[in-house]
Amino acid sequence: MVRLPLTPAEVERGQRLGALLRRARGERSMLLTALDAGVSPETLRKIESGRVATPAFPTIAAIADVLGLSLDEVWAEISRSDAAVRLAPSERRLAS
């Protein structure tokens, strides 16, 4: 199976997701968070660093649950600037 390159919007969403998870984890150990979520610490590290921009839904759901984040919160954070990306340049100026 050939994986298509990520779009700039997908990369940006992955970076926002990683930042959200890092903030929510706070001082909590990455190792304990990953183990509690049932994922490897390496997977969590890659998601938090943005290296895995499109992780599987069950993975994100498990991590969010461990961190006390609702999926609505996660979605709101990662999709917050997608509307601006879809606007034409002239519309972006009007929306700002």
Results as ranks from 00 to 15, higher is better:
M1H: 13
V2P: 12
V2W: 01
R3T: 06
R3C: 01
L4N: 05
P5V: 00
P5R: 03
L6W: 11
L6P: 03
L6Q: 15
L6Y: 15
P8H: 12
E10G: 12
V11N: 11
E12M: 13
E12F: 03
E12P: 05
R13F: 02
R13E: 12
G14L: 06
G14D: 00
G14R: 01
R16I: 05
R16M: 02
R16Y: 10
R16W: 07
L17P: 13
G18F: 09
G18N: 12
G18I: 15
A19C: 02
L21P: 13
L21I: 10
R22C: 06
R22T: 14
R23H: 03
A24G: 02
R25D: 06
E27Y: 00
E27K: 11
E27C: 05
R28T: 05
R28K: 13
R28F: 06
R28L: 10
S29G: 02
L35K: 06
D36E: 15
A37L: 00
A37E: 07
A37H: 06
A37T: 12
A37C: 08
G38A: 08
G38F: 05
V39A: 01
S40I: 02
S40A: 05
S40E: 08
S40P: 02
P41G: 03
E42V: 14
T43S: 00
L44G: 01
L44P: 06
L44V: 00
R45M: 06
R45H: 06
R45P: 00
K46Y: 08
K46C: 13
I47C: 04
E48M: 08
G50K: 13
R51K: 15
V52S: 07
V52L: 11
T54M: 13
P55R: 13
P55F: 00
F57T: 15
P58Y: 09
T59K: 08
T59H: 08
I60E: 03
I60D: 13
I60H: 08
A61I: 08
A61M: 14
I63L: 15
I63F: 00
I63C: 09
I63T: 14
A64Y: 10
A64E: 10
D65M: 13
L67W: 07
G68Y: 01
G68D: 02
L69N: 03
L71I: 14
L71D: 08
E73P: 03
E73L: 03
E73N: 03
W75P: 02
W75D: 15
W75H: 09
W75N: 11
A76C: 05
E77I: 05
E77N: 10
E77P: 04
I78F: 02
I78P: 00
S79R: 05
S79F: 10
S81F: 07
S81M: 11
D82T: 03
D82S: 09
D82E: 04
A83I: 14
A83Q: 07
A84C: 04
R86T: 06
L87D: 11
L87M: 15
L87Y: 04
L87E: 11
A88I: 06
R92A: 04
R92H: 03
R92P: 03
R92T: 02
R92V: 04
R93I: 15
A95T: 03
S96H: 09
S96N: 09
